[in-house]
Design a protein around this nucleic acid. Structure first.
Length: 562
RNA sequence: UACCCCGUGGUGUAAUUGGCAACACAUCUGGUUUUGGUCCAGACGUUUCAGGUUCAAGUCCUGGCGGGGUAACCA
């Protein structure tokens, strides 16, 4: 190691988020040697963008500190959890680019240990078995301004609780009739500390342990304990668990474990025009408001993947929004922009016309075709080129022609000139309309001298460049233009949030014509259709005609002004 | 009317932990460009309020105001 570090080689001082500050302190004080985090989904639903943030925080921090991050399924409520989610969640985590190596855990793997912890608490006089009913227990808990009442069973001898707890496990009691409770303080200002339930009886089959157990630990009894068993150093979770932290610490302190884990909470992600709540996503899917969990309009990871979002773009988005305790809402624009930034570098360019208007180029003979060389990606010097065939009949975008065009309209107008992308300059000579006055065709001439970007001495520079396809050589396709599912920025705040669904969230364009090379694309491949946006070939639609989904539009200064 | 957390440009964040408030995006202006894309340059604009401590407060203390969370045998 050189002892003469040069200024340039020193690590740049990056600003840290509040969790990094805490971790640095813990490391400096020797509280932990390695940073070991975990991502703890409950297998009762699919992952969405909110989980992506949590994934980026826990796996990202572990990577950054050269530590470890486990994947742990928090499966302590058999009535809600199913195996099918387990595989889908793993697939999504991998897709996002995170690897738990051999550290895949299930809370249910630790049921025996957790049972032992419960016995340990009973022995220490920190927990007791209570057979108060649900209703009575709720009544005795009190409220914000009302202290709770001690259960008559609170001072049951430890041995008696131990015996009853054993009989709970043995299945001697009905579900709901008996629970194990922590013995803390029924007058505590934090309601969670008023003798919370630690174990309850459930008679549903567990997706992994089947009928081995009829008692299950609650979240509070399981989470910190699993953290400890997996030797987690930092247990990162969202803000709504802040009130649980005193209970987390209380339990962890009373268990026979060496390095207590530490819970740190950060704010969850909110996104404009989007809903990120498991419950509401379920309603959208089950209510038939979308096509399924992988509907490209959904913020599920499956939906984002199908829509053409790349893992890089999602991770970059998460990096941009940062990690804080402020409940804030990110602009949907940021997510879209992260995709643009990623795809601008990588996506091959192609030409396609969504709403075709016929153009006859008078100066090209029937049957003749002129080869135009098109750059595949101006951002990628190694991207190569491809040939486009310019023929007598081509198609341009209907909105690239205007009869009464405003001054700053750079596209085609009667008598006007425009350049065909990768092709020559066209002059509009004739506008043909049908009986109803609708423009059905343009007759143009092209200028041989203007191929290859050349301009002609003495002529006014042509500002407009439009995309096009050959009418004969192009292929038909279906294109889906996707808009936000909701019309208001914060649909979650609405009483009738389903009434806010955007009726135009998916516009199916069946008139699209694309350059022929796109026929050979494979499902999931992404492209930039020049001037229109980034598109991906849908993997879940029939391939004839091929279906392309627009992931996001390009930024567009013109339409923004209009 | 209980408890916990949070308030920094339009938005999202930063400020070496008490020392000249900065970065990105957005917006506006100009330049480059065979995508009204990309890229480059510049401009605009910020500490919720009132007290207090201090030579010095975005940062610490008290109070107000505003926002979020919490009363499941869910996680």
């Amino acid at each position: 190691m050189s002892e003469t570090p040069e200024k340039e080689t020193e690590a740049p001082r990056v600003s840290r988020n509040f969790i990094e500050v805490e971790i640095d302190r813990d490391l400096a004080q020797g509280r932990t040697k390695v940073v070991h985090t975990r991502f703890p989904p409950e297998p009762n639903g699919y992952l969405h963008l909110g989980h992506a943030k949590a994934l980026c925080v826990s796996f990202g921090l572990a990577r950054q500190y050269e530590g470890l991050c486990n994947l742990r399924f928090d499966d302590t409520n058999p009535s809600k959890e199913e195996d099918r989610y387990v595989n889908a969640i793993q697939k999504d985590v991998r897709w996002l680019g995170f690897d738990w190596q051999d550290r895949l855990y299930f809370a249910s793997d630790f049921f025996e240990e957790l049972y032992g912890f419960a016995q340990h608490l009973i022995e220490g006089g920190h927990a007791y078995v209570d057979d108060l009913g649900v209703e009575e227990m709720r009544a005795q808990r009190g409220g914000p301004n009302l202290v709770g009442t001690n259960s008559p069973n609170r001072d049951r001898p430890n041995q008696e609780s131990m015996d009853l707890f054993g009989r709970m496990r043995a299945g001697e009691f009905e579900p709901g009739s008996v629970v194990l409770r922590a013995k803390i303080d029924m007058a505590h200002a934090n309601l969670l500390m008023r003798d919370p339930v630690l174990y309850r009886i459930q008679d549903s089959a567990h997706h992994r342990t089947g009928r081995d157990w009829c008692i299950y630990p609650t979240y509070d009894m399981a989470h910190g304990q699993c953290d400890a068993l997996e030797e987690i150093s930092h247990s990162l979770c969202s803000l709504e668990f802040e009130n649980h932290r005193p209970l987390y610490d209380w339990l962890v302190e009373r268990l026979p474990i060496q390095n207590p884990p530490r819970q740190i909470e950060f704010s969850r992600l909110s996104l404009t025009y989007t809903l990120l709540s498991k419950r509401r996503l379920v309603e959208l899917v089950e209510g038939g408001h979308v096509d399924g969990w992988d509907d490209p309009r959904l913020p599920t990871l499956q939906g984002l993947r199908r829509r053409g979002y790349t893992p890089e773009s999602v991770r970059n988005f998460c990096a941009r929004i940062g990690v804080t305790k402020v409940s804030s809402t990110a602009e949907l624009f940021w997510l879209e922009d992260a995709l643009r930034e990623d795809q601008n570098r990588r996506a091959p360019r192609r030409l396609g016309v969504l709403d075709p208007l016929k153009v006859t180029i008078r100066t090209i003979d029937e049957g003749q075709s002129v080869v135009c060389q098109a750059v595949n990606n101006p951002e990628d010097a190694d991207g190569g080129t491809r040939d486009l065939e310019l023929t007598r009949r081509i198609l341009i975008e209907r909105n690239d022609f205007l009869e009464d065009a405003p001054r700053k309209f750079f596209r085609l107008r009667p008598e006007g000139r425009v350049r065909l992308r990768y092709g020559p300059i066209l002059t509009c000579e004739e506008v043909i309309k049908d009986e109803s006055g609708q423009v059905v065709e343009l007759v143009c001439s092209h200028d041989e001298r203007t191929f290859g970007g050349a301009s002609v001495e003495g002529q006014k520079r042509v500002k407009g460049i439009i995309h096009w396809v050959s009418a004969d050589k192009s292929v038909a396709a279906e294109v889906h233009l996707l808009e936000p599912l909701f019309m208001s920025e914060n649909p979650g705040a609405l009483e009738d949030w389903l009434g806010d669904l955007n009726p135009d969230s998916r516009r199916v364009i069946s008139t699209a014509r694309l350059e022929a090379s796109l026929l050979a694309s494979s499902p999931g491949e992404t492209f930039q259709f020049e001037r229109l946006g980034y598109f991906t070939r849908d993997a879940s639609s029939p391939s004839d005609p091929p279906v392309f989904l627009r992931t996001v539009t390009l930024r567009d200064r013109w339409s923004k002004k209009g």
